[in-house]
């Protein structure tokens, strides 16, 4: 009994890439991904909103899938590839979507925006021109208390159309 308790680690070592750069870290087993990024790596683009996995403000990308940064533990990240809004801004992967959000005023307080961009990028990655209903469904796990979503849906629809027509990234 006591052996088991002693052998259960409270900290683990992880090796991963964050925004394309290798990161080696020793993390507390209870450290959440969003806290690891914000507090240990200083990447504050993903925001802690509800910390229940409901509001979506901490949405980011792990191994190509969007995840809630508040529901995943840093300890699960060994070998993972993590992208945050800071990284995708630098690579330009989100440039057309970001430009459309700015252009269409698809943000007000901006707190939900990085997470919303990941949800939007996720449906755009499926290709084609999704319907507005499909866009709404896809981003319905990301709360925005300011905009009423109309502008957000418009922005995503516009980018989907531009990509489907093979237009150049405008930003």
């Amino acid at each position: 009994m006591s052996d088991t308790a002693q052998s259960f680690p409270t900290r683990v070592d992880i090796s991963l890439t964050v925004n394309g750069e290798p990161v080696d870290a020793r993390v507390d087993v209870s450290r959440h991904l969003v806290d690891f990024l914000r507090l240990d790596l200083g990447l504050t683009g993903a925001h802690a909103g509800c910390e229940h996995g409901v509001c979506g403000a901490c949405t980011l990308q792990v191994d190509g899938e969007i995840v809630r940064g508040c529901l995943m533990l840093a300890a699960q990240l060994d070998g993972a590839e993590v992208w945050t809004v800071e990284g995708l801004t630098e690579t330009g992967a989100l440039a057309d979507l970001q430009a459309a959000f700015v252009e269409r005023n698809a943000l007000q307080c901006g707190f939900c925006t990085p997470g919303m961009l990941f949800a939007a990028a996720d449906i755009l990655a499926q290709g084609g021109q999704p319907s507005r209903v499909a866009i709404r469904e896809h981003i319905s796990g990301n709360y925005c208390r300011c905009t009423g979503y109309e502008a957000v849906v418009d922005a995503i629809e516009t980018v989907a159309g531009a990509r489907a027509r093979g237009e150049e990234v405008s930003a």
Binding site: L43, G45, A46, V85, T89, L94, V102, N105, L107, P114
Partner: peptide, 13 residues
């Protein structure tokens, strides 16, 4: 656009 729009979308606000 909002004064911080560029920063909002890049996570730098």
């Amino acid at each position: 656009p909002h004064d911080s729009a560029i920063r909002h979308v890049s996570g730098s606000a």
